[in-house]
């Protein structure tokens, strides 16, 4: 009778041991990855803290020492730069370039990808191969002839010229990404729509475009970040523009002020704010875009 009442002594404690062992086993990995994560954060945090410190402090002590004394942080750098640095104008120029370049790429690429996936025409496969090839053509390849061309057209040194350049070099990847996504839309859907009486435009507008939204979002974020962060094209075509975009603005400051870190760090951080906001807000789409573009 007592034998029945007595519980097996080991049984209940076994899972607890297993649990503990699992924790012990995963500890080194956790510690390692925490360290890596901190390491990855350090550079950005360094810039952020530096941008909130008086220039004199920068030479006196490391930014990490300021974290212990938050009282020494000040928004003075930001106040100064917003009043004198032309950052406001630069921000406007950057927006004026980035927004149209993003919208145009999204529009043109989704149209082109539709033609590549859902229309049947001779040479279609070759056009796709050409696009894949164009995807890796360096930006530099077209600088000089396009500068000449823009000179004739009066586009040199203008925002539309830069926008057009970004659209052109964004398109191959954009069409590639949209094509991959559209290829996953069942052909049946389009055929059903065709039988339902839709013409090509309606099929694009009512079926493909709504279904392609996630991919369009990925593409838009990608293109937005590329254009926003571009230095080369802006420097080549807008170097002498009265209100150059953010990247060029900071580039000029770097060569102009040399080591005045308060200005450089503050301007750099201002240029990063919007991309970082976009990144954190739409990270899911960004990752999806990376994967769609990289892994076929």
């Amino acid at each position: 009778m007592t034998a029945i009442a007595a519980p097996a002594p080991e049984a209940p404690s076994a899972p607890r041991w297993a649990h503990l062992r699992r924790i012990l086993k995963s500890t080194p990995v956790n510690v390692l990855l925490v360290a890596v994560g901190l390491l990855w954060l350090v550079p950005t945090v360094g810039l952020l803290v530096t941008s909130f410190r008086p220039a004199a402090d920068y030479f006196a002590s490391g930014w990490w020492q300021a974290i212990a004394h938050p009282a020494v942080l000040t928004v003075e750098n930001y106040r100064n730069i917003l009043h004198t640095g032309g950052i406001g104008d630069a921000l406007i120029t950057t927006v004026l370039i980035t927004v149209p370049a993003t919208l145009l790429v999204v529009l043109i690429a989704s149209l082109g990808a539709y033609a590549l996936v859902f229309l049947r025409w001779p040479g279609r496969d070759w056009v796709f191969v050409l696009l894949v090839a164009l995807m890796v053509v360096p930006l530099q390849m077209a600088l000089i002839p396009v500068a000449t061309l823009y000179g004739h057209l009066g586009l040199y040194g203008t925002i539309p010229g830069v926008v057009l350049y970004h659209v052109a070099f964004g398109l191959p990847f954009a069409i590639f990404l949209m094509r991959n996504f559209y290829s996953g839309i069942p052909k049946d859907l389009l055929e059903a729509a065709r039988i339902d009486g839709a013409n090509e435009w309606m099929m694009f507008r009512r079926i493909v475009l709504p279904l392609g939204m996630p991919a369009l979002a990925s593409l838009a974020i990608f293109q937005f970040l590329w254009v926003w962060n571009d230095l080369l094209v802006a420097l080549s075509f807008l170097g002498a523009y009265p209100h150059p975009p953010l990247t060029v603005n900071i580039f000029n400051k770097l060569s102009e002020f040399g080591t005045s870190i308060d200005v450089i760090s503050t301007a750099s951080f201002i240029s990063m704010i919007i991309p970082l906001v976009v990144f954190f807000a739409f990270q899911r789409y960004f990752v999806r875009g990376v994967l769609a573009g990289a892994v076929k």
Binding site: D188, E191, A192, D196, A198, P210
Partner: peptide, 18 residues
Amino acid sequence: PKDRDIAMVFQSYALYPH
């Protein structure tokens, strides 16, 4: 197809998911 006055039921049903 739209002028043939026919309707089709697909194997996959081809319903518009959105």
